[in-house]
Design a protein around this nucleic acid. Structure first.
Lengths: 163, 163
DNA sequence: CACAATTCAGTTGTGCACAATTGAATGGTG
DNA sequence: CACCATTCAATTGTGCACAACTGAATTGTG
């Protein structure tokens, strides 16, 4: 009566594909809609944060997005080349780089306002459905992050390791 | 009473982050567990398909995974270099390349059997929860794919375009 | 049969994700 | 003050995703 390993493998295949496909499908829809703004999906995420905060160091940006400098540095350079942001070393702490919107970057927000509605109409999901789905996904992420944290030795709560 | 654009943008920010984070969290958990097998997450997906089908052309593989040759060609070369698959031009159709498992590739399945259980225990989700979540995600993917198909002119059902 | 359109794998170029490392700046300790 | 550890952005290298293109093989049509 127990689920045999073989069935688990098939189920894993299903959920793997589902998630992978969903992630890429989402990416694809955003790509189409963001093409008008000249942004990629990750660049849009960065802009969303900057529209809320206006100026913040790369480190903070990375914390919001869970991305490290290895991803952000080249991405921000491209946004800078596009004239949407400026990067400048903090005077207070020379290690830190402050990212701030240019006027052009601020102005882009007005055009971005229509993006979510276009996405929503693509999915046919209403605000409530979106919220519900988000809650469900966040549960999953939380569980996964907790699991990943356990597996990584550094900082893992001591005493909880397998006997 | 209508949801204003600004709120949509905030909500979009939320759902964007959620999905992006979930996708990467999942990827991270798989990465840790698959490290033992020497596979990346996409490589694992390919192997899952091959364990079911044993031999099939790159094209079919791409249809199963929704990936094109631009992604699969180099990935399959790496799997071949790792000794898990062989690639050979089909005799029947010289355009096609047949991918088949080596003995080593077949043998790896035994070790992979424990992967789903480790993933499941990471998430704390049972089979039913996994199935329910998958169904929900698939709905989303279907909606997104339909939306993407509409937006792309080629092959879009004629007569259904916006007046 | 000849020729155009299609199919298929592969390549090229751009961009993201992440691990590992580098190097400068900073902060803490003796 | 001198020394060491930490913090931070940037760089390097590997791998995936996708668009655009190439070139060979095949199929459809006259």
């Amino acid at each position: 009566m127990n689920t045999p390993d073989d069935d688990w493998l098939r189920l894993d295949q299903q959920i793997c594909f589902s998630l992978h496909a969903a992630s890429r499908a989402f990416n694809g829809v955003y790509r189409q809609i963001l093409k008008d703004l000249g942004l990629t999906y990750p660049q849009y995420l960065v802009m969303l944060v900057l529209w809320e905060h206006d100026e913040l160091p790369v480190k903070k940006l990375g914390e919001h997005l869970r991305l490290d400098s290895g991803t952000l540095s080249p991405l921000l350079k491209r946004l800078e080349a596009a004239g949407l942001v400026r990067r400048e070393r903090s005077a207070r702490d020379e290690r830190s780089v402050e990212v701030r919107l240019t006027e052009e970057g601020v102005a882009l927000r007005a055009r971005a306002l229509q993006v979510p509605r276009r996405i929503a109409s693509s999915t046919g999901f209403g605000p409530e459905e979106v919220r519900a789905l988000r809650a469900r996904i966040d549960e999953l992420t939380t569980a996964l992050d907790a699991a990943a944290a356990l597996a990584e030795p550094q900082g893992g709560s001591p005493g909880t390791g397998p006997s």
